[in-house]
């Protein structure tokens, strides 16, 4: 007996089936992440070490140094984590598994959600761990408005995920991806004021900072940590805008696939 009937489920059944497939995909991607956790671990541990070492310097150099050192390094290493998203998606291309999934019953939206959900959680976890560490070890005051901070983390992780997906969709090799993510991350985050506080940077750099998502992430997180809801909104909106544009391009590209000639 063959299962190919013309059966079409009703809307609730269709949703249930869709969630079932997304869970299967997300489980698979979680397994893959858990079996290769190295990159994730280093992007959590490295900023912890740096926070500890750099905190006295920041405190002496600028006002609110503790907040700046925690949020700055958080932003910098969360930008590095773009490569986690990028590599995870690019790997599906090098393994040729993405085309196998495209042949399955799961439509492209499900494939993308199933693929990116575990990575999103990894990114949110990375930032949350770093903030908690900042409070417990570095001496960042515990934020008054926790939901605001959490919301900011969700927005920033979403932006990073979209940028990562876009990069994975357009590069031709893992080498190309790491050049873009490493150099790009360092430039974006330091230009945004994540490494050296913006007030200490040359004037041209301060002006250019506004072009960097890192700058907006930093403004958003610093406002959120300070409980400044109004100050959080503008950067959050800008980041969401960037995320939507990058995400839309990535989705279009990933849905179409590459055929055979896509990779070096």
């Amino acid at each position: 007996m063959l299962l190919d009937t013309g059966y079409r489920p009703g809307p609730t059944a269709a949703l249930r089936e869709s969630l079932y497939r997304i869970r299967a995909l997300a489980n698979n991607n979680t397994l893959i992440r858990l079996r290769d956790p190295g990159q994730t671990i280093s992007y959590v541990v490295m900023p912890m070490v740096l926070m500890l070492v750099l905190e006295p310097l920041y405190v002496r150099a600028v006002e609110g140094g503790t907040t700046k050192v925690v949020t700055g390094l958080l932003v910098m290493f969360s930008v590095f984590a773009i490569s986690i998203a990028g590599n995870a998606i690019l790997a599906e291309r090098t393994w040729k598994t993405w085309d196998r999934l495209r042949v399955s019953r799961a439509p492209a939206a499900e494939l993308l959600i199933g693929k990116t959900l575990p990575i999103y959680l990894v990114m949110v976890a990375q930032q949350t761990i770093l903030l908690v560490y900042g409070c417990l070890v570095i001496g960042l005051p515990i934020p008054g408005n926790i939901p605001l901070v959490l919301g900011s983390i969700l927005v920033w992780a979403f932006t990073l995920l979209a940028i990562g997906a876009l990069l994975a969709a357009i590069v031709r090799s893992h080498g190309e991806l790491s050049v873009i993510t490493d150099v790009g991350a360092l430039t974006l985050s330091s230009l945004g004021g994540a490494l050296v506080p913006l007030s200490l940077m040359p004037e041209w750099a301060q002006a250019a900072a506004h072009l960097s998502p890192g700058y907006w992430a930093l403004s958003m997180l610093q406002a959120a940590v300070a409980g400044d809801t109004a100050g959080t909104m503008l950067p959050a909106a800008i980041l969401l805008g960037i995320a939507l544009v990058c995400g839309a391009f990535a989705i279009r590209r990933l849905t179409r696939g590459w055929g055979r000639g896509g990779l070096l």
């Binding site: 079932y20 299967a24 698979n28 079996r35 040729k96 196998r100 019953r105």
Partner: peptide, 27 residues
């Protein structure tokens, strides 16, 4: 059902996990 010419499997995932994944994807 498509079995491509080139091997396309997840290296770190077991055979049973593959069958589970593709079975679930087909409902």
């Amino acid at each position: 059902g498509v079995a491509p010419q080139h091997i396309a499997l997840y290296p770190s995932v077991t055979v049973r996990e593959h069958l589970n994944l593709f079975g679930k994807l087909s409902g």
